[in-house]
Design a protein around this nucleic acid. Sequence first.
DNA 1: CACTAGCGTAAGCCATTGCTTACGGTAAGT
DNA 2: ACTTACCGTAAGCAATGGCTTACGCTAGTG
Lengths: 106, 106
Amino acid sequence: MAYASALQCLSDPTRRQVFERLRAGPQSVGALAHGLPVSRPAVSQHLKALKDAGLVLQRAEGARRVYYIDPQGLAELRRWLDRFWTDALTAFKNEVDATHGTRSKP
Amino acid sequence: MAYASALQCLSDPTRRQVFERLRAGPQSVGALAHGLPVSRPAVSQHLKALKDAGLVLQRAEGARRVYYIDPQGLAELRRWLDRFWTDALTAFKNEVDATHGTRSKP
DNA sequence: CACTAGCGTAAGCCATTGCTTACGGTAAGT
DNA sequence: ACTTACCGTAAGCAATGGCTTACGCTAGTG
């Protein structure tokens, strides 16, 4: 259940901002910090959290570290949400049928 | 951007547990609290948060309040994630093409 | 009209956490 | 080799947030 850490990561607005900036493509830490309302170490910590959650990957490019989105992390989150979605919909439909058509508690 | 509050809601493990219990179908507050490792008021507060985030709905059934999942909240979260997913994939593919095939910076 | 069941809300406490400053360590440039 | 750029980590702090106990209110029941 890695979606738990992913959800917790994406709950923080600043961290989500970092993640969304990565959506356009790979970026270095400094480039990410430039334009965000927090310091560079803060961005670094957010990136570590995102990496631990399996949402981003990293490659060294000289002295700078370039981060980019890990599709697998997003995929797992999507699977969880999709499963949840279908389950909730069937439960919803069942409830409508039970309440509407016949008696709900025989 | 209501997905923000939805994400923050689902980040807490206990609150997510409450939400997942609702996946099977509508339930009252007491029924939800029974079996969870927290007190009933705690569950009540979680339900309020989920309701404010647009993830659950409520109906009065005599003295008891029955909560159930709001498909719309899930739908919005799904839309956000899907959009993110496609964007990230195209960026990923573009990067692979640029790094692999031709020059990345003309 | 009491009395109970079922919830929501308020106040308070404690843990978590996000941010900053400060420091250390590696890579590139001169 | 010295300096600069770039980054991760540690420590410390202030704020957020989840849980509990206590209280008040409404809906049924005798």
